[in-house]
Design a protein around this nucleic acid. Structure first.
Lengths: 254, 254
DNA sequence: CATAAACTATTACGTTACGTTAGAATCAAT
DNA sequence: ATTGATTCTAACGTAACGTAATAGTTTATG
């Protein structure tokens, strides 16, 4: 058992930081003395290491908490993803180093750099994308389903452009359905749009069976992450879409 | 000339960020339209690139502003220091990657890692040290003086403990002088304390000639960085000390 | 064994670098 | 002429601690 400053010194963070982590429930000490002194165990140290890994990847504390508190959390898998992300970060740094070198050269030669070259290296979008996927993978409640895994396998092969196109197409369909929200979920046009949506999933993620599709439809209202995201397009769209998918699946199964 | 969103998109930052930089005076647009729209020039873009470089090294905006607004700012030199620091950061990342690998292995083999190995890689102190030196080097108005360079050469050799002792002794002397502030600057005891101060500089930084000492005394009230720092000990100490040094130097030169 | 030095706790306000509305004006394109 | 995108200012929100104040606890030392 370690006292708070021992931990702080060992790890290289401040006592206040540990207080803070306790406050927000990210890392509660194993126990306390009679006087209320915090006592940290070996386990706590391991968790703290995990936290530092996540912090290194610029995850916010709330997300770290969610990830670590997930009962399905797979430490081994997480570490491998950490490694990948860290490598990406390192590569980004290498790019920036190159950019600095280029800039030095451009000054010496008196040439101007193109704007692309000036700022390209700072781009974080790819890293952010992987972080998102990472957070999703580790957070998912349904991370064990085959459909999800197939999805992961497919999506990981996409390039930036592919991905943009998919997202683009996706919001097109969402918007199309949103436009039809004054109709009823069983309306012909609505159902045609739902069919498009299913096809989109099959084309880009995994073969979307009726069963999966039904589950997905439910997920859109049960899971706040999906729900909120969809309702960004149009308030109430998640509910509407979910209902329309239910109708679609009912009909398909006749 | 670019409008704000053009810049934001080109660089990959938000419009709000540019607003913010304008607010705090870090990056003011070259000009504005009649309607008050911000217009950014090529020069502004170059400066923005510099800002991003500094941000990549986790300098805070205030420090970046100070550095960039220094008329002696040497872009070329700065870029080289950037490069060095970035390389250090990359190496740190590499260490962390190794640490992740080790952790994976330790899990597989069921062995425990030593605490040192668990947390060593996260250490930022060396990078921070270099950052400090960097900030000092680029900020100094008197960075060209020999006294300053000698100081740099000496200080860079100190270990943490040495450094603490020096700082300790320094504030002792400051405090001693602060205690004497009810006397006049030419008071015997005050002058003795000033002598101690000069000796301290000679012992630890560089041979402090009367000329240098006189300049230093002026610096304490002219340069806000020194002034504010000294006045933290006691309001008005900077002015008092400065005057006492003037008296000291006048007497010494007779 | 007392007593100072070092640690710890809680509470609470401060800070940095923006994010996020909100409301109004301006511009670009149909 | 209107609509959608962009811009402005102003102002409050927030994340992850830092910092300061006050008070109780433990440990080292004369």
């Amino acid at each position: 058992m370690y006292k708070i400053k021992e931990v702080a010194d060992m790890v290289g963070i401040s006592v206040r930081t540990l207080h803070h982590y306790d406050e927000i429930g990210l890392l509660k000490p194993d126990s306390t003395t009679e006087a209320g002194y915090r006592l940290y165990s070996e386990k706590d140290l391991e968790k703290l290491q995990q936290i530092l890994f996540f912090k290194e990847l610029d995850f916010d504390l709330k997300t770290i908490k969610e990830i670590l508190s997930n009962p399905n959390f797979d430490k081994r898998r997480a570490l491998e993803l950490h490694k990948q992300l860290l490598i990406k970060k390192r590569d980004r740094l290498n790019k920036i180093i190159e950019c600095v070198e280029d800039t030095i050269e451009s000054i010496e030669r008196g040439i101007k750099m193109s704007k692309d070259n000036m700022f390209e290296a700072f781009d974080m979008s790819e890293i952010e994308k992987y972080k998102q996927k990472y957070a999703e993978e580790t957070k998912q409640k349904y991370g064990h389903t085959d459909a999800y895994k197939e999805s992961m396998a497919k999506t990981s092969k996409y390039t930036n452009k592919d991905w943009e196109n998919i997202i683009q197409r996706q919001s097109e369909i969402y918007r199309e359905i949103a436009e039809l929200m004054d109709r009823t979920p069983d309306d012909e046009d609505v159902q045609r749009a739902v069919e498009k949506w299913r096809q989109h999933i099959t084309d880009n993620f995994y073969y979307c069976t009726i069963d999966i599709f039904r589950g997905l439809g439910e997920l859109y209202v049960i899971d706040d992450r999906f729900k909120n995201n969809i309702n960004k397009i149009q308030e109430g769209l998640a509910e509407f879409l979910s209902e329309a998918i239910r109708v679609y699946c009912d009909r398909a199964e006749e």
